[in-house]
Design a protein around this nucleic acid. Structure first.
Lengths: 152, 152
DNA sequence: TGTGAAATAGTTCATTT
DNA sequence: AAATGAACTATTTCACA
């Protein structure tokens, strides 16, 4: 990943529908050269996908919560992760260091909906020792941008 | 937001570089009609932006952490939020209910880099009572998809 | 709001440097 | 690896429903 690729990523993180000619002009390359670099970045997996970022509130997801989960034993992980992947409300699932095992980011309609996800879906599984829920009252910043480094 | 808009959002969340003609075919509309609906969704703020999703690890951000922050008094919020917005490493900043005031999602290069952000940048501010850091060891799921409801 | 056709604009590919 | 230009596609605009 050279400095052209870094510039391409910078631009595409903010505007993935840009025309190749315009992207090329911004980075100082011809359109075909820019287009080829973008496909290469996709093949390498550096660009995972191009997606629309939707306003959660306006799309009817007015509640955001973080839920820490503790599992009884390692063999409960498989079914737990399978459930996480199947639930649309689970936006993120991180295996964490510390007191608890997993930290989830959940987006749903309202508190009743959150109760369904936590009390029925998640706690319905075997091996869930406890959950600790943190309600988000306001989101001051939320971005998919990353500080891009030289990579590998 | 009618059912055409919901389908459009569904498709665009996964592939924002789709040709309008192909999007139109998927939802059963003509290309100009689809393109017009997309601009309307952007004007309404439902589509916030089109962006590339970058693999954090491959882009050199190998460390993810969640940091809970407590502020001494409400007047410390302004400078704190200003700092959050200025730091590229802060991907998310949520005002939360409970023991702490804010929950941050931080993406950076390594533990040394995290130390710089927390110990120097954040704790360098006045009014920071304490921070509690949770290191992410593995991310099992991370998506920008949302369960789309009827909206408003 | 939607459609279809014409005009405009962008992308891709073969070739050259 | 990248630029160029021609052939091929896609998008946008506009008249009309």
């Amino acid at each position: 990943m050279d400095s052209f690729d870094m510039k391409i990523i910078e631009v595409l993180m903010d505007n993935s529908r840009i025309k190749w000619a315009d992207l090329a002009a911004q980075i100082g390359l011809s359109a075909p050269a820019a287009a080829e670099r973008v496909s290469r970045l996709q093949e390498q997996g550096i660009i995972k996908k191009f997606g629309a970022l939707i306003d959660a509130d306006l799309a009817g997801c007015e509640l955001t919560a973080f839920v820490a989960v503790s599992l009884a034993r390692p063999e409960h992980r498989g079914p737990f992760l399978q459930l996480m992947n199947s639930l649309a409300e689970i936006q993120e699932c991180h295996h964490i260091a510390g007191e608890d095992d997993y930290l989830l980011k959940i987006r749903c309609r309202n508190t009743k909906d959150l109760d369904r996800v936590i009390s029925h879906e998640i706690k319905g599984l075997e091996g869930i020792i406890r959950t600790k829920t943190t309600i988000v009252m306001d989101t001051a910043k939320e971005t998919t941008r990353l500080p891009i480094h030289k990579g590998r």
